[in-house]
Structure formats: structure tokens, C-alpha cells
Computed example of a mutant assay.
Amino acid sequence: MEFKTVVFYVLAAVMVFAALRVITARNPVHAALFLVLAFFNAGGIWLILQAEFLAIMLVMVYVGAVMVLFLFVVMMLDINVDRLREGFWGYLPVGAVVGAVMLAEMVLVLSGPYFGLDNMPEPPMAGAGYSNTRALGRILYTDYVYPFELASLVLLVAMIAAVALTLRKRKGTKYVNPSDQIAVKRADRVEVLAMSAEKE
């Protein structure tokens, strides 16, 4: 067995363990940290597959930005974990059925003629001027341009929906109209009072 295969199996095993701990950990902070571990192992698998750009983007975007945001939100909110886990075991049969179906689909796809490990040729070595970022961009914006634009529209709709759902007017909030501040005149703000001097 080659060293690359051993590294792949180690990274895959750690990633599966971390993914299982994400959904079984009782502490939300520990679950987020296990998700960070899963992302790091996924980045290592991308490096083995010679996709350095995807590995760096996965670590920088998800671990460096999204997971830090998750950790701040989880640590700042007062989450009642016991209340969240009240109906956890009630959904276990449905989750097990869905997981079994997904596992069967993955086994059927990976054991097919296109993804079989026996039929998979060794990837060709890249030349001196090869850039996988350029190749990824060329494929993404030529062959898969319509799915890419559709995914961007879905993300845009999700972002607008998140803003619309969280935007609510509160009764105790003080609001200042900037146009009223700009249109104000000196006479409206300054008032000179004529007062007589005090006598002893």
C-alpha cells in the first residue's frame, strides 16, 4: 500500500469521526470545533487530489471565517442544550433510514464503471506551467456556467431572505432620519434667550 493511500485513509477516518462527533457532541462549542477538524481533514484530502486551490479556500473561508463566526455566535448566545435535545432520539429512525439510503447511493456510484477503484487510472502529472486554479476557472465558467449562475442566484435569495427575516422594527428603538438632520437650519437648533442679570 502506498504512502498516499495510507494518508488518505487516515484523513478520511478522522473526518468521519469528527463528522459523527459534530452531531453527537452535547456541547455546541465542542461540536463546532469538531466541524473545524472535519474541514481540516477535507482540505488534506483535497491536497492529496492535487487540488491545492480548493484546499486553501476550504481552510481560509470555512475554518477562517465561517467557523469563527459560528463559535462567536454559539459562545455569545445562551443556548439551552437540554431543550434542544428533547426530541433528538425521536428522529433517530428517520435519520437512520435517510443515512442508509445515502450510503447505498454512494456505494452504487463509487462501485460503478466510472468511479471504480480498479478502473481508475493514475492522474497525469502536471506540467511546469500548469495551474489548477486556471483550469478550475476555465471549466467553471465554460462547461458549468449555468449551474454556477443558478447556485449564485440561490445564495443571493438566501442572503436576502436572511436579511428580511431578521429585519424587524422594535418599539423601543430610537430612529434618526438623516435627511432631517441635513435639512436643519441654525434657527431651529440655536435659540438666544434674553435674560436679565441677577441682582444681589
Score class of each variant (00 low, 15 high):
Val6Lys: 11
Ala38Ser: 13
Leu92Arg: 07
Ala135Thr: 07
Val107Tyr: 05
Leu117Cys: 01
Val163Glu: 10
Phe72His: 06
Ser196Phe: 04
Gln181Cys: 04
Val157Ser: 06
Leu49Val: 09
Ala25Cys: 09
Gly137Arg: 10
Ala100Met: 02
Leu155Asn: 08
Ala194Pro: 09
Val7Ser: 05
Leu92Ser: 09
Val36Asn: 02
Gly43Phe: 02
Ile23Leu: 05
Ile45Ser: 00
Leu103Ala: 04
Glu122Pro: 11
Gly172Pro: 14
Arg186Asn: 03
Pro93Ile: 00
Val154Ala: 14
Val10Ser: 13
Thr166Asp: 12
Ile48Ser: 04
Val107Thr: 09
Ala158Tyr: 10
Phe72Arg: 07
Phe72Tyr: 07
Ala187Cys: 06
Val73Lys: 06
Gly95Asn: 13
Gly90Met: 02
Pro93Cys: 01
Val22Met: 07
Val184Gly: 06
Met57Asn: 13
Met15Asp: 12
Gly95Arg: 03
Leu140Gly: 09
Leu37Tyr: 03
Ile45Val: 02
Leu35Asp: 06
Ala135Ile: 10
Phe115Ile: 02
Asn119Met: 07
Trp89Ser: 13
Ala25Asp: 02
Leu103Tyr: 00
Leu136Ala: 11
Ala19Cys: 11
Val101Ala: 06
Glu86Arg: 05
Lys185Ser: 15
Gly44Asn: 05
Gly116Glu: 00
Tyr146Pro: 09
Gly129Ser: 10
Leu37Pro: 04
Gly44Lys: 01
Ser152His: 08
Asp188His: 08
Val98Cys: 04
Val176Lys: 09
Leu77Arg: 08
Val66Ala: 15
Ala162Trp: 06
Tyr144Thr: 06
Leu117Met: 10
Val109Lys: 01
Glu198Lys: 05
